[in-house]
Design a protein around this nucleic acid. Sequence first.
DNA 1: CACGTGACGTCTA
DNA 2: TTAGACGCCACGT
Length: 99
Amino acid sequence: MDEFSQNIYTILSFLGEGKLITYGQLASQAGYPAHSRHVGKILARLPKDTRLPWFRVVNSQGKISLQGDALIRQKNLLEKEGIKVTEEGKIVKFKQYLG
DNA sequence: CACGTGACGTCTA
DNA sequence: TTAGACGCCACGT
């Protein structure tokens, strides 16, 4: 477990309900601005029963980067927190949910 | 060592 | 607003 991953987990654990963050912001806040892609890899290997709010992470365009059933899962979790998402996975009023 | 790939980002037309 | 071109970095082959 490297420092970058630890930072990602810490930042996510402090991300409150109804708040969103992008891969790029996570990477930057973790101290490695150029590692936005790596954030995805780290999230992808999280256990299914993790307590971390991985579903509050979207790309800089305000869209969910997952596909198929995974997209549906994240969509449902977000809507459960009052965030509206279109069929294509686009977050409605995306910028309102950032820090 | 070269190359392809991925839950990405920024610029530009 | 959308698409394509590039940039970026860790990893497996």
